[in-house]
Design a protein around this nucleic acid. Structure first.
Lengths: 136, 136
DNA sequence: CTCCGTGCAAACGATTTGCACTATG
DNA sequence: CATAGTGCAAATCGTTTGCACGGAG
């Protein structure tokens, strides 16, 4: 199964890279539609899947939420904001995490691990100050 | 808002504990239905939410998948099988993970982190041997 | 007797799929 | 010109919600 570089695939890839953000399928769809108004959301989904399998983009599966896609394929971790759900990059010193020790438990063959850092982004911290604490 | 201990809530809690597994809402629904056939899936969802808020059970949000609920509220981590999606317990030596170092990046206020270990469970390793490698 | 909780069905958000058509290599 | 990719609509999956009724405290 060979990959064809269609117009829509090219634009999807270009717009994700241009954004320099971790967009969800529908956020990217909105951007791509401005350039190619007749594109379908299904095409965006299909291409994001294909592009991430091909290793051209990264796929982020944050617990319990919508998937997001990463323009940056290099090795790094992410932090996400519990308030606005934005995702940012984070460089973890991986030698702080001793994977081998985790290893043998329960007879599993460990194939990988993800560290998911959760926090509140600068913008949301600022907003939280403005609106004292009637949140919830 | 006080909690009432209804029959359905009691059975849901009991069956989850009895299972000693990390069940999803619909898996638990199937079990509870055997005892109380007219119970609705919505009731199971509502109660699992309430019980986990009350701290009587744990809620696991594994990346991109269905939520699972934990009979064991004590502090521990999880490992999940990429093949069958089963979840098992794992005790991580948390001092292997240096949270403070992760800290300041990007101006986020860090509220927590999850370590998600991914692997293949013993059963699936065994199956993989039997069916050589025509998978995919 | 007050409301929290229930069952049911419908609504929901994210994602996937079947189909006939289009266009890349 | 074969067949990967597209647009569209409908389907699916996990979960939530509105509503009228039922039962715990």
């Amino acid at each position: 199964m060979q990959l064809r570089m269609t117009n829509q695939r090219e634009i999807i890839l270009r717009e994700l890279r241009k954004s320099r953000q971790h967009l969800s399928a529908d956020e990217l769809y909105d951007r791509v539609k401005l350039i190619m108004p007749r594109i379908s959301l299904a095409t965006v989904y299909r291409n994001l899947e294909i592009l991430s399998e091909a290793g051209l983009i990264g796929k982020l599966e944050i617990s319990g939420r919508q998937k997001r896609f990463d323009f940056d394929v290099s090795d790094h971790d992410h932090i996400y904001c519990v308030v606005c759900h934005k995702v940012d990059n984070l460089i973890i010193e991986r030698n702080n995490v001793n994977v081998d020790r985790l290893g043998t438990a329960a007879g599993y063959a460990i194939t990988g691990y993800r560290v998911e850092i959760v926090g509140i982004c600068p913008e949301c911290q600022k907003k939280a100050k403005d609106v004292p604490k009637n949140i919830e």
